[in-house]
Computed example of a mutant assay.
Amino acid sequence: MSDPSDTPPEPRRNFYGRRHGKTLRPSQRGYLAEDLGNLRPHGITAAENPERAPIDPVALFGDDRQIWLEVGFGGGEHMVAMAARYPEIGIIGCEPFINGVAMLLGKIRAAGVQNVSVHPGDARDLMDVLPDASIARAFLNYPDPWPKARHHRRRFVTADHLRPLFRVMQPGAEFRVATDIPDYVRQTVEEGPQAGFVLVDEGPQPWDDWPSTRYEQKALREGRPPHYVTFRR
């Protein structure tokens, strides 16, 4: 089986950010080689689906359960915690950083959760082939802040990402954003409604089922208070 970290990015659009970090441990390379193939949704890449036909969400988990989407799952703490807490739903996680994918796979093994699917790439490639109104909840936790003003267009909370997300979410579905960057909050609450989302709440109080992540703990140690934003589709 080929190493997914050697898979070139889709040539159709620009991608900003890292795909590789420090050298993977042997155990992590084992997770990628042994587990990712069974958890990865098929029909996402141009090679697998050159016509970009919609995929069948039922095929992801074998039934018509609710499907949630996590964009940029980092090390996977939130995704695995939610999968364990809500075994009746299915969660698709997108993450192009292969080290994060390997970390998630290790956590999936340790937790024994079976209601997860892992796309090791750009969330836009997945949203291209998801049917309309197929996602019941979406999460964006501590995304790359791209702090320089000239890089703000690279943030996830722009029309290039939010409009496809709006399309694939069900009416009434919840979209959650967590960040410790005040200017990211500003852009989020400005851009979300422009893409069609309705702002429900924003402030320092997390959701009742929120499991803190390593990025949040780092922000707290460094004196940056977290902020939580909730939209409805």
Rank of each mutant, 00 (worst) to 15 (best):
L104K: 01
L105H: 03
L105T: 01
L105N: 01
L105G: 00
G106A: 06
K107V: 02
K107Q: 09
A110S: 14
V113A: 01
V113F: 10
Q114L: 10
Q114F: 05
N115Q: 13
N115L: 14
N115H: 13
V116N: 01
S117E: 09
S117M: 11
V118K: 03
V118D: 01
P120A: 09
P120V: 07
P120F: 09
G121A: 14
D122V: 11
A123S: 15
D125R: 08
D125F: 11
M127K: 02
V129E: 03
L130T: 02
P131I: 06
A133D: 10
I135W: 09
A136V: 10
R137L: 06
R137N: 00
A138I: 10
L140A: 14
L140M: 15
L140R: 05
N141E: 07
N141H: 15
P143S: 13
D144T: 09
P147T: 02
A149N: 09
A149Y: 08
A149F: 08
R150A: 02
H151D: 07
H152N: 03
H152I: 00
H152E: 05
R154H: 15
R154I: 07
R155S: 05
F156D: 00
V157S: 04
T158K: 10
H161V: 15
P164A: 06
L165T: 07
F166D: 06
R167G: 04
R167H: 08
V168H: 01
M169H: 08
P171S: 12
P171C: 11
G172Y: 14
A173V: 09
A173Y: 04
E174I: 14
F175S: 01
V177D: 02
V177N: 01
A178C: 12
T179H: 06
I181A: 10
P182L: 12
P182M: 10
Y184E: 00
Y184L: 13
V185K: 05
V185W: 07
V185L: 09
Q187P: 04
Q187A: 05
Q187C: 05
T188H: 08
T188K: 03
V189W: 09
E190C: 02
E190L: 14
E190Y: 05
